[in-house]
């Protein structure tokens, strides 16, 4: 296959940046999207051009490090991570546009690499159960109905990639934040800090500059892990019931 790639190049966070067009030939259908970029980068290096920088690590769809806004969609045309996208999803002669995640709270570091540490700070605001090492009771002393555990697991599968933010016209982080709030609100272990958690995580999300949710559902449609938008509804319930009966008031 031969492809035309329009790739966003930006030297650093202060550079204005712009698209540069490259031709990728000898692309095989079995290559992953990132392997296609690896091959391009080796060619660029041999020609003395700084390779295209992009984030990636596990290449198994689980670490959440890879990103890329491909042809107007986060992680490209399939509901999967970019690292799991293969070139058989494209056809010979196609032009592919590759951009970084676009969101105020995710500033571009270089080329296609963005800074997602805002997500870490949201978790630091309360995305945990306060239990010190060593103080836990026997694991089976906390029975949890299977359907509840399954629901919690559905929410816990979030990989923190940020596709939900990139997909949202308001760059809202509601899906990400609600996934963690839901997981812990569903489980008995999360009950003690349930209210403060919802209040603090939502406050941090707003402080980071993420937008509001207007229920377009783009986040759910683009989430590579299928995190459901019902988590946002649950988070809103958690948040409102927390503010009317706050533990900290």
């Amino acid at each position: 296959m031969k492809l035309t790639l329009k790739i966003w190049r930006q030297k650093n966070s202060t550079d204005k940046g712009g698209f540069v067009t490259y031709v990728a030939d000898h692309v095989s259908k079995d290559m992953s999207f990132l392997e296609m970029l690896d091959v391009l980068n080796d060619q660029l290096t041999e020609r003395g051009v700084d390779p295209v920088h992009f984030d990636h690590d596990c290449r198994e769809g689980i670490c959440g490090m890879c990103s890329l806004y491909i042809n107007g969609k986060p992680h490209g045309p399939l509901q999967t991570t970019t690292c799991q996208l293969h070139m058989r999803s494209f056809s010979d002669g196609e032009t592919i546009t590759i951009e970084p995640w676009r969101a105020k709270a995710f500033p571009v570091v270089k080329d296609l690499v963005v800074n997602r540490s805002a997500f870490d700070r949201i978790i630091q605001a309360g995305g945990y159960v306060s239990v010190n090492t060593g103080g836990a009771p026997d694991a089976n002393e906390i029975p949890i109905p299977k359907n509840v555990a399954d629901l919690a697991m559905d929410a816990a599968q979030c990989i923190g990639c940020g596709a939900c933010v990139a997909a949202c016209k308001n760059a809202s982080a509601m899906l990400f934040t609600s996934a963690k709030i839901s997981q812990l609100a569903l489980l008995p272990q999360g009950q003690v800090e349930r209210k403060t958690r919802a209040e603090k995580m939502v406050a941090q999300m707003d402080a980071e500059g993420f937008g509001a949710c207007t229920n377009t559902g783009a986040c759910e449609a683009e989430c590579p892990k299928g995190i459901s938008i019902t988590n946002i509804a649950r988070m809103n319930r958690e948040y409102f019931s927390a503010v009317v009966s706050s533990d900290t008031m």
Binding site: A136, D138, A152, Q183
Partner: peptide
């Protein structure tokens, strides 16, 4: 054995049987 206790206390959603146990 303590690892499992610790992880469950943190809210790790391990697979469960219908009776609610691990």
């Amino acid at each position: 054995v303590k690892i499992i206790d610790q992880c469950v206390a943190q809210g790790v959603p391990f697979a469960r049987e219908y009776g609610g146990l691990l």
